[in-house]
Design a protein around this nucleic acid. Sequence first.
DNA 1: ACAATACTTCAACTATAATTGAAATATTAA
DNA 2: TTAATATTTCAATTATAGTTGAAGTATTGT
Lengths: 122, 122
Amino acid sequence: MDNSTATTVFESLSSGVRLDIVRLLIKTGHQGLVAGEIATTLGLPATNLSFHLKALTQATLVSVTQEGRFQRYRANLAIMQELIVYLTEECCSGHPEQCFEKPLAAADCCDTNPSLSSTQTD
Amino acid sequence: MDNSTATTVFESLSSGVRLDIVRLLIKTGHQGLVAGEIATTLGLPATNLSFHLKALTQATLVSVTQEGRFQRYRANLAIMQELIVYLTEECCSGHPEQCFEKPLAAADCCDTNPSLSSTQTD
DNA sequence: ACAATACTTCAACTATAATTGAAATATTAA
DNA sequence: TTAATATTTCAATTATAGTTGAAGTATTGT
């Protein structure tokens, strides 16, 4: 991931609304959600949601597929992983010795570790 | 890291200027840089830099200490690590089975692995 | 064909962020 | 103590982002 892509991704996630959308879509995984379901879940007017979904789609953080008159949105997990790699590289750049003094916990991510998910606020 | 903190951090890094500042300060590590050095390196007017440094400081992405009439800024690596953990948790939430299909590379970060740093664009 | 549904686009508006030069503050050097 | 240096704050301006209702497009159900 290059710096301008990273900026675009950060920009996308800098809106509370868009972060909520991405987190919601990550939770629904491959199934994703159609626009109306997102609107209902997050209590957003359709036009406002559409605005943010367009931004997220252009930033490739979500993908869309048409299903009849519905538009199904899915989170792009790959780019989240790339973002994690990017941040890890940046944190280490030139200073590996002070990088990750405490354990990263990334490796623990997929374990059944309730203490990780319980740190979330909503 | 809670969601509103994450939003604040993303907001901070969503500006190309601020991302440049943080990346520069990460490179200089514990030594950090005084404001004037940052301004010279990035070619920014002092007042504009000060604006962004204030935002970064309030978001706790950088810290300041006074040295006579200089202000020395340093990156807060700990919050970058927390951000990585936050993203990892979010990516995994509810879907550990599809989390990190490809290797994360986070663990390789501090190894002498030139292929990682060579992916950066500037 | 026609009405209903799902969603997007458009245009207008409001809100927030970024940039700038001038003035202010604080520290140091002469 | 006066001048120079380092940085911040302020006020004004410009630029960009977010929100909304109305209208438009496309698909489906009757």
